[in-house]
Nucleic acid binder design. Sequence first.
DNA 1: AGCCTCCCACTTTTT
DNA 2: GTGGGAGGCT
Length: 1025
Amino acid sequence: MEPEPEPSSPQEPQESQELDVELILDGLNKVQRDAVVSDAEVLQILAPPGSGKTRTLTSRVAYMLANGMSPSNIIVATFTNKASKEMKERISKMIGGGLEHRLIIGTFHSIATKYLRKYGHLIGLPKEFGIADTGDSSNVISRIIKRNKYSTMDGSDAGNVRSRISTLKAKMQSVDDYIASQKKANSTDEFSKIYDQYEKELKNSNLLDFDDLLLRCLDLLRAHPLCVSNIESVLIDEFQDTNLVQFDLMCLFAQRRNKITIVGDPDQSIYGFRAAEIGNLKTMQQVYPNTIVLNLEENYRSAAAILNCSLEVIQQDKARPQKGITPTHQLGTSPVLRKLPSPHFEAQWIVQEILRLRALTGNMFTFDDIAILVRSAGLARDIEPQMNNQRIPYRLIAGTKFFERQEVKPVLDYLRVIIDPNNSEALARVVNIPKRRLGSKSVEGLVAEAHKRGISIWTLICKGVRGDLKFEAPISKLGEQSLCQFIKVIKDIRKLLESAELAMKHDIAPIIQSLLDKIGYRAHIENMQKPGEERWVHVEELIEQATEFCNNLAAGFDDDLPDSDADAVVIEESTISIALGRFLANAALATVKESPEAENSQASEGVLTISTIHNAKGLEWPIVFVPGCYTGSIPHSRSEDTDEERRLLYVAMTRAQVLLYLSYPSELRDRKSGDKQESNLCTFLAEDKLKPLMKSAGPKISLAVIEEFGKIMGRECPTIEKIQETTKAANLPNRDDYVPSDDPSVNNYGTYTENEFQEDYDDDFDDHEGYNSRNSYSRTTTTRNYNQSSTSAYNRSNSYSTNRTTMTTAFSAQSTTIQGFRSANSHMHSLVNSQLEAEVDVRRVAFKRKSDGISGDNNDTKQSQSKSVKQKTDSKSKPKPKNTLANYFQKAPVKETDALPETRTGTSAPEPATKGPTLTKPPKQEKYIYLSSSPERPPPRNEIINQNHHLQEQMRRNPPVSNFTSVSGMVNGSSYMAPTTMSRMAGNTANAGSSTSRPASAVPLKTLGMRRSMSGWNDRHGTKK
DNA sequence: AGCCTCCCACTTTTT
DNA sequence: GTGGGAGGCT
Ligand SMILES: Nc1ncnc2c1ncn2[C@@H]1O[C@H](COP(=O)(O)OP(=O)(O)OP(=O)(O)O)[C@@H](O)[C@H]1O
């Protein structure tokens, strides 16, 4: 029952859709447009940071939709769930109609979960499988180690073992493969035993870990291609960070039509530690010989000075091919590299500098515009107290996730048990919460006994308390009594769930409530928390989230897969327990790092972001601080791949739009001794070449500098009046002369005489001439126009035209005044006293705009007003998307909802696949030779050096013996069996996939020279050590 | 045996 | 800041 032929005719685009197409293409440059409309079957868009990759990919999805492709026939894999949310929002702005809700979009893991939920039964997967997060996995492993009393490890190695196992699984090495690859039984034998038992334990508990989600989905789609027979197009963002399993999944998703678009940047691959496989780029070209590569080279994000520095860093990777980035913005302010005495003062400096910048620019920046990016979550701890000191609102995106919080996690575990009492992992964790006199001995005993008897803990304790068996585990009288109560609670809540189901309720919150009441959770939490902590609010927050989740589900914003050919066997289930299961899966895969409630608290000045660099991937901010640039942090002392650390720094630097601050403490406190310890500037920044490109302290802010900021950010500059006002109020000198000190009586900027202070401003505003006129009507002429096309909707300056004429008048009038001012004070006076009084109307307008701003962002530009409107619409649901995604296509009117032909309920037939995205009017019918805009091009494909483990694996196991076999062969087997690659692969096979067992005789292929000859964008750099 | 408290060692990055 | 281990008390 292969689904049949191409549907007779593709849906003709209707008029409204043609309109959409213009909207979608608006504001894109030539190459971007070509990429969006390309009818290439397999397209790779490889480009540097800030070149609009994500934007292009988003537009391409929108374009497909606008051309009538059904959203449920499109798979889009993003790197985080947050990113997919943002992408959906942007697509919605471009084409509207709610189509985006029906896209199959999410991380690989969440997409895989959807498929497994729906079709897992086809491969024998129990229907309500749970997802084991990292903590669950470590617990299982820790228990295995303890139970077996292994000699080479103890419980504290669990984390390590877990990540080793994960890496193996991500490389598709099953236990058997692993054992086979170990020459003889030795100390690693214990490891393979753990691996083996781990897999079995997960299975017994009906759990899948993150890697299993992908691997099982692979199994599913291989055995049942019909599940994805409807898929017409597969698109992947951040492809450089996909692993081998994800690559195969991509191929399988696309197996029906082989239409794939990926975007990525080898220089930004920073997840090698998670088995990301940069070789996927080349594998893809080999598996799909019809791959077309496009390069985008213009950077729209950062000031050129920032790009110059960043490039200087990434180019230190000698194996990296030269590639071009063309700045579209002016030089801007030099990045700052400042050394401070300690992490504490580093943080203090950052905060002072933030305050100084805001004040001296007339609050041109809100806290939303600022990010502090750190290598590791721990570094944020130095910064947080300083933020609190100065009352700067911030959100921390690092470290513990919301759902992992001590007070939140047990609630989720209880719910897991309620859904599936045989989930022994979860049960073991909560059976003694709150305290039930079942200590570690009892619980360990129960776990061991259940394991021995081959039953779940739940079954064991039920039988035990009933007297059907006698506990071997040491359970006290009291313990046994409370065990009874525990069982009763679980049973009661399960009954409650059943009756809620019968009553057709959909909200799980009341169920959670009554669970928590029954176990006295609130008292428990409040008992254990330290004074001053308010942990219970997080539990309340969780309940609210549950309600919101259920409402969304009920409202049809669910993440159900569309029905497809394999749907003969759909399992009908009652809804509320489905809701609960979904909620838990969602929690396991979620990336939410903070209590979402923090979001609502502040308003007008925005919220600053403190984030790990990893979490900042794909985002951008006007101002970026990267503290902790010392050897040991960047590159991290525990990292194994220095090149990856360098790329990490590169990613951090390229997040910045106008101002980049790098810093490091010259002394660290030794953890153990508390002694001071010298630290050295990160080697990547110590290069001589970088010196002339950076300044040792923050910039002096002049009108010219402010103007530059405005141009680069595409934002209106504050009035001089405003600048003077905030400057005066802050009473800070216009220099980064910060002096480290905690003494409140010491001014961190030293002592300034009134004269000195004024001189700063005299200098500062000396170059003001023309400021006003430049910043009113002539902005577009001073801003470089990047778009060939004159239809640039992305010309940011036209997004705030409303008051322009009025303001211009005001500025012109002012400029005569300003000519002569001597200081901040005198300027203020002049403004207040004279000329402006003639401009009462204008001031009223300005005031009006300011107060408008108060309701949303405080920034009184037109642009930020429209931004705040946008934020209002989605503020409830999530951490605010950063600016990267915020400003796309804001003005795109929402198209009237097209009546959707398909119904989305029941088990209707899959939607017919339309015939590819039809090009209604491709800009030009030229062949895509854009391999092009960059100087060097990829070589003919069959000359590409194979350095890819994946293919080597193919070769090595022939015939495949493993549980995991690659799919790529079936997609286009012949393509990589070409003799040219064959021989190379044979030569490389000795190294295949294993760094541990490289024979000394097999000299690793030094491919440096050859790599250099390859074109840039296909390749990051050479073989890993 | 549980449970509490104190102390020590350790703290990369994450779906 | 926290998790695991040791020791003392119930
Ligand atoms: N043609 C264009 N004209 C003006 N601005 C653009 C254009 N294309 C993209 N931009 C802007 O450039 C910025 C970066 O875009 P985007 O995030 O899509 O880049 P990216 O290549 O995905 O970056 P990264 O590699 O860092 O994830 C965004 O602010 C976007 O709005």
